[in-house]
Design a binder for these strands. Structure first.
Length: 567
DNA sequence: AGTTTCGGCGCC
DNA sequence: AAAGGGCGCCGAAACT
């Protein structure tokens, strides 16, 4: 942290740079240099580069083989700080932040550009407003002061630093791409779907299933049209509201089996079929455009190609280069472990202090060894289930782990009432639009909650007052989940940052990240080092994020040549 | 004709 | 009878 420099690409292709002092303001004159990459390459002693946007700068550095250890993304920090300040809707660009600082009219943010298949310049933002370096550092210095004004300044600094690190990881993963065997992919498609027919219509297997569905109904039915299917069932004397699988599956009708099979395969065909392969795989790599912090909870998203929704069967196509391996690592029961860490519930921390199956331990304590019940109860608590077995079991969970359940209940209540809710590090959940109006309306127009159920009598009132609108309760569920899912995202950022540092000295590359799962592509001889690095990174991230707690964050790891073999 | 929303389902 | 949070993507349907 001792040696920070600010950097701003100039509009003519050059770059402005300046060393920064402890206050975040320039410690020397702003210099102009002709070449962005050379300016960075020539200063390996710089510990952190401060810039407007990682997505603007870092792909250009990577393109010339230059990596940096750390950065600080001003616009990302602006987003997080505005959120913490309860100002979610305000423009987050550096230009807007500067305008606020100077008391000038605040420009709206430029529109987001969406990805195109095969794009070679991911996340390039040509429409961004240029801010000269001298102005940019003013915004930065102001942000440093705003960190101090947050509820937990140290955590907030960790959050902005961690998310900036995540943006470096994302840019590097975008460049590396996920190793993808088009041949293996085509093999899977052919096995599942059969031959393709000329003209781009349905492949053989789908056509056959469509015929079976039609035969079962006694007339031509297109199984990909919900309205047609609903009508066909109605004519057969069966009323269905939708054609969702869970609703169709239990029906007693000969069309059900081929219909369900059709929907499964149709999904593969349209979302990950031959045209997807054509659009998204180039030179043996699939490049989903990873976007760190793309959601309000801090989870990442990908832009293009459905990178975080690769169906299990299609993972057969993710194949390491010859002589290389994929280290596939999956965090075990991440969300309940995170809940233990943020709630500091003694019982849950003790359970989460073991590396063994957490749901089994919970069930031994509270559910007479019934693991499935325990899992449903825990997930119900985290997701805000309002009925069914999950709610019934919530009572048992609350008796054994009162602080943990109270933590998410409190978050839910805060969400209902339109108050701010934060992750452990300080990412803040935006109050939903209309929250204030709803709160006022609820005060005047009571809406009874559904009938009593067993969970209500056994602990504190889950929904606070006995009145809440549907909207308010939805906000409650959102907020309840936010504190867990978001704090988990906090932790994974620290994990990725630590793992990235280890990989920096090796040939190994991070190539995929999906919420609680990471894939490293590395030479076979590095694989065991990577496995150890993941375990160490997980524990380090746990300590850095949540402080000293007994909670452990074990991973299931597999060293494989093919992703599909990891589970 | 082009854009937005819906229904459904993939992943966590 | 409905029923748990977060996403993205596709084609069809609904709209301007």
């Amino acid at each position: 942290m001792t040696d920070r420099w600010a950097l701003a690409p100039a509009e003519d292709g050059g770059v402005e740079i300046a060393p920064l002092g402890p206050d975040g303001l320039p410690a020397g004159p702003v210099r102009r240099e002709a070449d962005l990459a050379e300016a960075v390459r020539g200063r390996p002693e710089v510990a952190r580069w401060v810039w407007r946007s990682t997505a603007e700068v870092y792909p250009r550095l990577l393109a010339t083989g230059v990596r940096v250890e750390r950065c600080y993304d001003i616009e990302d920090a602006e987003t997080l700080l505005l959120g913490h300040e309860g100002r979610h809707g305000e423009p987050r660009s550096a230009a807007a932040a500067l305008a606020r600082l100077r008391g000038r009219p605040v420009p709206p943010d430029p529109p987001q550009r969406s990805a195109e298949p095969g794009s070679q310049s991911p996340l390039f933002e040509p429409q961004a407003v240029h801010v000269p370096l001298a102005d940019l550092v003013e915004v930065y210095a102001d942000q440093q002061r705003r960190h101090d004004a947050t509820a937990h300044p140290e955590r907030m600094r960790l959050l902005t630093a961690a998310e900036s690190a995540g943006m470096l990881v994302a840019a590097e993963m975008n460049r590396a791409g996920l190793p993808w065997s088009a041949e293996a992919h085509r093999r899977v498609l052919h096995d599942l779907l059969g031959e393709r027919y000329a003209g781009g219509g349905e492949p053989r297997r789908l056509a056959e299933l469509a015929d079976e569905v039609s035969a079962a109904f006694g007339r031509r039915v297109r199984p990909d049209l919900p309205a047609d299917v609903i009508k066909a069932f109605a004519q057969a004397g069966i009323k269905v509201r939708s054609t969702r699988r869970w609703e169709i599956e239990s029906l007693d009708h000969p069309a059900v089996k081929p219909l369900v099979e059709y929907k499964k395969l149709y999904r593969i065909w349209v979302a990950h079929g031959w045209s997807w392969l054509q659009d998204w795989v180039r030179d043996g790599r699939f490049r989903p455009e990873f976007l760190a912090g793309g959601t309000v909870t801090g989870r990442w998203v990908t832009n293009g190609g459905g990178g975080l929704q690769i169906p299990k069967v299609i993972r057969r196509a993710v194949v390491a280069d010859p002589g290389w391996r994929l280290v596939v690592a999956d965090a075990d029961q991440m969300e309940p472990r995170v809940l233990a860490a943020i709630s500091r519930d003694p019982g849950l921390m003790e359970v989460a202090g073991r590396e063994t199956d957490l749901y089994q331990s919970v069930s031994d304590r509270a559910f007479s060894g019934d693991r499935d019940q325990a899992k449903i109860a825990v997930l119900g608590a985290v997701y805000g289930q309002t009925s069914g077995d999950g709610l019934k079991n919530l009572a048992a969970l609350r008796r054994r782990f009162p602080k943990a359940v109270a933590y998410v209940d409190d978050a839910a209540r805060a969400g209902e009432e339109g108050r701010l809710v934060r992750t452990w590090l300080g990412r803040t959940c935006p109050p939903a639009a209309g929250a204030t109006e709803d709160a006022a309306e609820e005060a005047g127009i009571p809406v009874p909650v559904p009938e009593d159920d067993p969970a209500e009598g056994s602990g504190p009132q889950e929904w606070g007052r006995g009145y809440a609108s549907t909207n308010a309760r939805a906000r409650g569920r959102f907020a309840r989940n936010f504190v867990v899912q978001g704090s988990a995202a906090d932790w994974t950022l620290l994990l990725l940052a630590a793992l990235r540092r280890t990989c920096a000295g090796m040939a190994a590359e991070l190539v995929f990240f999906q919420h609680d799962e990471v894939i490293v592509h590395c030479p076979e001889e590095e694989a065991e080092t990577v496995v150890a690095a993941i375990r160490e990174a997980a524990e380090l991230a746990g300590r850095l994020t949540f402080g000293e707690t007994p909670v452990r964050f074990p991973f299931t790891t597999a060293v494989v040549e093919c992703y599909a073999d990891a589970k």
